[in-house]
Design a protein around this nucleic acid. Structure first.
Lengths: 199, 199
DNA sequence: ACTCATAACTGAGTGCAGTCATGATTTGTT
DNA sequence: AACAAATCATGACTGCACTCAGTTATGAGT
């Protein structure tokens, strides 16, 4: 078996490098200053590409944010999911899934809220958007799985309720009204709502 | 008691007239073409005011949309609220409140979704925004009142559940994924979720 | 009637996301 | 090696929401 010789041509490698540079530049600038305080020009400059090039890799600035942050949310979900396995109470287990996501979302409030805005109002056909939606689906599946532990929740009801839970999460994290709330306050707020809908 | 002689000076009257012209122009253009296909310039022109003047009456284009549409939602709520009184089943009564709002929201899909986006992500301190939030509060109160008919729902739980219902409504109407769904489909979708959380 | 202070109006100007015609690179073909 | 076709990169450009320095209208005071 010979060494696999990078089955890609120069073109593919260049593209990958550019994508990496853009991702790195955007990650750093967004984290430092927040998405609204960074221009796409600055990202292009830092990544050492033309301004138009950025938009070959992400169709909008919002998509660029999704590209940069999806991995964080995915990680947060996995952490919560495994935590939830060690928790017996259903409500506590649901909250174990939710808490790391809220924490991830609030690492930088503006970025977190913009991420959510993009998810709901952006174009779901864009690849990074689709990935974000896939994470939501996985989150709802994880919540549904926990809900099914309770024998008071039916198979179908679990999926529906999980969707309701994600609606609750969305509003609690996104609303401008709650902009200045801490992670703990938001989690508490979500908990109260989830608690009300468990039979 | 003498006739109250318009206690306002020329200044106040001029302001009111400008506001009326701007509101009329925006209402018409938004309805005809959709918020994204109309520029603030065009609204200013149609209202016969300077471009800057528009922004004295609404701080952003989004606020302008709230200004124009708030009354419609308020009316829709009142219609639904009175309809709900004639419906005995709790779930049906909640849906009686919701349906006119969804219908109002879908009169023009893009405007409806932008309205919701502005409500959640806009600046709640702006007057038209505050009014929109007040309508949401009244909607939740109406839903809570219906929920309290059921003796299985506690006093506090009713308010919490009503808030959950408005989260469900928001996502069902706002998400790009559901952009092409009809009013009936959306109402059905909401109904399924609300049904799942009634005890 | 005249002056002054204040509130309201204005449109040229600014900054930024996103586009597109043109040019550069790479790959496939002979 | 030479050419053609396809893909990718670029930055000057466009369109639009929003601003602000300068102007005008109003009302209060004398």
């Amino acid at each position: 078996m010979s060494f696999v010789p990078e089955p890609v041509g120069r073109r593919e490698r260049n593209k990958q490098q550019k994508l990496d540079r853009i991702t790195a530049a955007a990650t750093e600038l967004f984290a430092e200053r927040g998405v609204d305080e960074v221009t796409t020009q600055q990202i292009a400059e830092k990544a050492d590409v033309g301004t138009g090039t950025v938009f070959l890799y992400a169709k909008t600035k919002g998509e660029l944010l999704l590209l940069v942050q999806n991995a964080n949310y995915s990680d947060a979900l996995e952490r919560g999911r495994s935590d939830a396995e060690t928790v017996s109470d259903v409500l506590d287990a649901v909250m174990a899934i939710i808490e790391p996501i809220v924490r991830c979302n609030r690492t930088q409030v503006d970025n977190g809220r913009t991420y959510l805005r993009e998810m709901v109002f952006g174009n779901p056909e864009e690849p990074h958007h689709a990935e974000a939606l896939a994470i939501v689906v996985r989150t709802e599946e994880a919540v549904a799985a926990v809900l099914r532990r309770s024998e008071r929740v039916g198979e179908a009801a679990a999926a529906t309720l999980a969707h309701v839970v994600s609606a609750i999460m969305f509003l609690a994290m996104a609303a401008t009204v709650d902009k200045d709330r801490s992670v703990d306050e938001i989690v508490k707020n979500i908990r109260a709502q989830v608690s009300a809908l468990l039979p």
